[in-house]
Simulated scan of single mutants.
Amino acid sequence: MTAMTAMTSVSEPQGGVGASAWQPAADRFTRQEYPPVGRSGLRLGRIALGLWHNFGAADDEAQARAVLRRAIDRGVIHLDLANNYGPPPGAAESLLGRVLRDELAGLRDELIISTKAGYVMGADPHGDGGSRKYLLTSLDQSLRRLQLDHVDLFYHHRPDPNTPLEETMAALDHAVRSGRALYVGLSNYPAPLLRRAAALLRQLGTPCVIHQPRYHLLDRGPEGGLLDALVDEGIGCIPFSPLAQGLLTDRYLDGRVPADSRAARPGSFLRPDMLDEPRLRRACALQTIAAARGQPLAGMALRWLLQRPAVCSVLIGASRPAQVDEAISAAAAPALSGAELATIESAALG
């Protein structure tokens, strides 16, 4: 019996509070648009849910399940993971595996589930990087945690200077040919390396369909050639950290760190020292523009990204169901005008 058959054969929810009573909204696919990813036939939806934060072993599982249910009700079909998401590493995949078994078994075929490998997962010689051994072993481990026989999308999470690019791309190609994944993507690759990798994958017959960079109003790195490369190669762009880990929300505009905020957590990627005067000044200026158009700062930041070249979807994080609603509303908001874009540009770079 395959992992897929095992998952769909479970008849009673295990661990899902109220799981047996929940049914996905019948109109969920009318809640957002599903543009194609680059020149592929894959469609992810304007808003996708990332499980980087809020789905670890120390997080509230009932709340995480509520976020997942709300996301699906609002038309989110893409759930994004990596082998190291937690903490501890692997915890987010294990949690989603339980939810897939308990509550979402009948929805598997409509979901796009992605995972990645590339960062440290073990102390052994093949515990990170881009070797064939690491990538395929990690993917098998991810499938066991997810209780699936394949993922829809498998990424190399970061370039590995110690492994030939040809070996890494051949491993991604093998992941598809072996039935472990349907599509492959890259993350955190600079433009020149992305072009080389895309050419290798085309030669192998397994094209790169998507790239996942960090990109938001205050971090414009992809504009230094990456977006042009993605357009040229026909590869979709799905930015992560679209709200700068919360800086592009109203939580920190006064410079204080709320006790229950992400910045207050030990090991957070948004450190209190990052709430410096230049960043806060720019965030406050952007907040003024957002207020003038009747939109939260976070919503305007998402709307801005969705108008950037090659961007087909944006990965949000959510600790509460209401944050999913806000993101879906942002995607449906009127497009930013040329004048608004110019004003935003001045504020973001000022």
Results as ranks from 00 to 15, higher is better:
278 P>G: 07
211 H>I: 12
39 R>Q: 14
259 A>I: 06
237 C>M: 05
251 R>W: 01
130 G>M: 05
97 G>Y: 07
186 L>V: 13
301 A>V: 08
209 V>W: 10
79 L>K: 00
31 R>F: 01
1 M>H: 12
50 G>Q: 07
242 P>R: 08
266 P>Q: 07
20 S>C: 03
192 P>A: 14
43 R>W: 01
50 G>W: 12
325 D>Q: 04
18 G>K: 10
98 R>D: 08
118 G>S: 05
166 E>V: 15
167 E>S: 09
7 M>C: 14
334 P>M: 06
325 D>N: 09
349 L>H: 02
349 L>M: 10
23 Q>R: 15
109 D>R: 13
110 E>L: 09
342 A>V: 14
8 T>N: 07
331 A>V: 06
132 R>Y: 11
113 I>D: 09
30 T>Q: 15
232 D>P: 01
205 G>S: 03
165 L>S: 06
13 P>M: 09
51 L>N: 07
262 R>N: 02
332 A>L: 15
209 V>P: 01
246 G>T: 05
224 G>N: 12
207 P>G: 08
290 A>D: 01
56 G>S: 10
144 R>W: 00
186 L>G: 02
44 L>D: 06
234 G>P: 10
335 A>E: 12
305 L>C: 06
198 A>W: 05
19 A>K: 02
226 L>D: 05
118 G>E: 04
53 H>E: 11
55 F>I: 07
114 S>Y: 02
66 A>T: 01
52 W>G: 00
341 L>D: 09
242 P>E: 06
310 A>M: 09
1 M>Y: 10
46 R>L: 13
108 R>E: 04
253 L>G: 05
297 L>A: 10
188 N>M: 13
207 P>V: 13
243 L>G: 09
281 R>D: 10
52 W>L: 11
